[in-house]
Nucleic acid binder design. Structure first.
Lengths: 147, 147
DNA sequence: TATATTTAGTTCACATACGAAATAAATTAT
DNA sequence: ATAATTTATTTCGTATGTGAACTAAATATA
């Protein structure tokens, strides 16, 4: 299972990197911001199931590339709003056809019913992977994604 | 899709790391060596679809932990055989029940027929992800995994 | 209000992966 | 046999992710 996942993950990453110079995470951040522009770092980290410390570096690099900008929150002096910039917006839009093509191409050999099962499976994994693993180890979970 | 994969990938990685101190890649290397002990670095890199340079570091760290050992190939003066050591063998064995439990638990909500579809899908992804992406970008592929 | 706790974000040391370039040995071509 | 090419591995610089420890601000509790 891990192998299947890691190879798709790496292949998708390679595709994005070659195509427009975005890592998977950068791409994911942009997609989130397209829906929730101005989201704070914590929220983005939560959505991506990444540690906050990772987001600091990720947003740094994206800022350096001119994809997003940090803006002080008016309400909370600790917090920053992350805003997508035009460059980021255009870039992420340019990836949509390619990623759609790839998804189609991956699902091509499967029937409509089978694709439904696959979609259900992937959603299940996406929303429960953390909990499933946590249940098995039955500890260290809250300590890992607490922040 | 990427999100689903990255979150499972990371969750599995966390599980292995917490449980016995193995990264997914280290685990995968040990599993390969259980079947093909003495495999050279190139072959392992090929199986994992990783660059050879990555394997140098990976094997370095595994050697430092006493999981595997490098041994000069008798035939080829450039090549090293990677051998699994007892410590590695015991460690990877100890992970098997846990990973089986997790796999079962992930597949639990799906019927036998659905599980068959899922397995077919994952195998498809594992063996074709690279090619699918390569077809789309239609270049840079052989240059990336040539060595 | 004063103190304690939680929360947002960063910094740090480290693990991991990558591609390009280097080295050295094996193979192929001439 | 010599030269050109390919192959196996390492080194280097860089990107990415992590958890622990830190700072500062917000919130809760006393």
């Amino acid at each position: 299972m891990q192998k299947a996942h890691s190879s798709l993950f790496r292949a998708a990453d390679r595709f994005l990197g070659e195509e427009v110079g975005l890592s998977t995470s950068q791409h994911a951040v942009l997609l989130i911001l397209m829906q929730h522009d101005g989201a704070p770092i914590s929220a983005i980290a939560g959505e991506l199931k990444m540690g906050k410390s990772s987001l600091t570096g990720l947003i740094d690099r994206m800022e350096k590339k001119g994809l997003v900008s940090r803006r002080q929150s008016a309400d909370d002096a600790r917090s920053f709003e992350i805003h997508i910039r035009d460059h980021g917006r255009h870039l992420v839009r340019s990836t949509l056809p390619g990623t759609k093509r790839i998804n189609r191409s991956i699902l091509e050999p499967f029937s409509a019913q089978e694709q439904e099962v696959i979609a259900r499976f992937l959603n299940h994994v996406a929303s429960n992977a953390d909990e499933i693993v946590a249940t098995q180890t039955s500890r260290k979970h809250k300590e890992n994604h607490p922040q």
